[in-house]
Design a binder for these strands. Structure first.
Length: 137
DNA sequence: GCCAACGTTGGC
DNA sequence: GCCAACGTTGGC
């Protein structure tokens, strides 16, 4: 079993990386997209997750980790979607902006760049390393 | 605020 | 089962 990497988006006005650090952990629910839900289901405990600020900031600002694998999303009345639980790992020394990622050829195939509306997406191992490096290591 | 992308809904 | 209309997301 190998560790996978992911990226989740959140509007910082609604829930920021700082909020996650303050809370210690949070239930990542409210995802109402089948492709995103499939990714949530594929997450394993200990997987690392880039935390991206959409709308405001437009940058990967921190790293979180999966502390609880997929379970039914209580906020979904139809009971079709799932949630996971995330905890903070660390804020990035230097946030990596969307513009930075678009300008980096090694990230051209990133799922979140190819499909901008996807709120939960996989990050390949090499893409993960590139972004970490861009963040200052 | 606008608009492109894309998922969902509903009429046929 | 197709496809037009509509709603939502998210970058600009």
């Amino acid at each position: 079993m190998t560790t996978s990497h992911w990226l989740v988006k959140s509007e910082p006005n609604t829930y920021s990386y700082g909020d996650l650090e303050r809370d210690g952990k949070t239930i990542w629910d409210g995802v109402r997209n089948n492709a995103a839900a499939l990714h949530l289901k594929a997450m394993r405990e200990g997987d690392e997750v880039f935390f991206y600020h959409s709308q405001e900031g437009l940058a990967v600002v921190g790293i979180a980790k999966v502390v609880r694998t997929a379970f039914p999303d209580k906020t979904d009345p139809a009971g079709r979607f799932v949630a996971v639980e995330l905890a903070p790992v660390r804020a990035l020394t230097r946030p990596v902006t969307l513009a930075d990622m678009k300008a980096e050829p090694a990230l051209a195939d990133m799922a979140m760049l190819r499909q901008s509306r996807l709120s939960v997406s996989p990050v390949a191992a090499d893409q993960w390393k590139v972004i970490l490096k861009m963040a200052g290591g």
